[in-house]
Amino acid sequence: MTPATRSKIALLGTLAVLLLVVPLLFPSAFHLRVAALVWINAIAALGLALLMGLAGQVSLGHAGFLAIGAYATALGPRHLGLDPLLSMLAGVFAAGILAFLVGRPILRLKGHYLAVATLGLGILVHLVVVSEVAITGGPDGIQVPRLVLFGWRVVGPEIWYAITGVVLLLATWIALNLEDSSTGRALRALHDSEIAAAVAGIDVARHKLLVFVVAAVYAALAGGLLALLNRFVTPDVASFLRSIELVTMVVIGGMGSIAGAIVGAALLTVLPQLLTFFHDYEHAVLGLAIVLFMVFLRQGIVPGLAGLFARGRRA
């Protein structure tokens, strides 16, 4: 077994154990709901971690893709009479196509043009869902019908906890395999030097585009699950602060670390629940957290702690 395979199994195993243990420790409906939110945010953060950590590209409008998944899940049943699950999958597909169309011209360029373009895209999506009141319900939001699978009404926090947990497990498995594949190596290579990657025979533009589409699909999937869990979608899901939150999860957890994305998502989802008396200052605390991490634990939690641990063992 290679070291990469071993660490893959270790992470998936830890995650599976965690999924089983959390309901035993925190059986209340509220706790399970928060946990389900953690798994959903972790899915979106995972995609972004691949984009930022492996390929070194930043998306500052990732909430836009989250919103596309969420609103597709709400709008399909409302306007077209589609099944919510089918609508969600259509939304995920649409987010992938949009990422392809936006990314194709931009990712041919070197540098952080993607950050600027996605920033615009995110604001655009937010604007559309706020102002197209007749279609999206505008600032008031829109209801999502209950998911019914083969006559079974999917309801209850335990069920949603389990569904989101299993999807996260699958998403993690796919992300780990992508990271460990020749495509993952190519992405890390072009992150380091696009010229050297090109003369090593890597089609730089195509690989950057691929990981951007994957990140968009992950975000839209998370958005769809969020809509189904909450049974309500508001334009909040598309807001710029939402995008920044996602980036913060990846940065705090540790860029380029799959486990880090999950830890970062957990921290940023659970902390506001614990610090409800700070609610008015939530985003100020978020900003402070980024600053402190950049100063004291630049690599993020997971790589930072792994480094400390390795140093401790050597000493």
């Binding site: 190596r185 890390r188 290579a189 380091d192 050297a196 090593a200």
Partner: peptide
């Protein structure tokens, strides 16, 4: 590719 191992660099070739 400085952060990658020698082996990964060679494999990328």
């Amino acid at each position: 590719f400085a952060p990658l191992s020698v082996l990964d660099n060679l494999r990328l070739g």
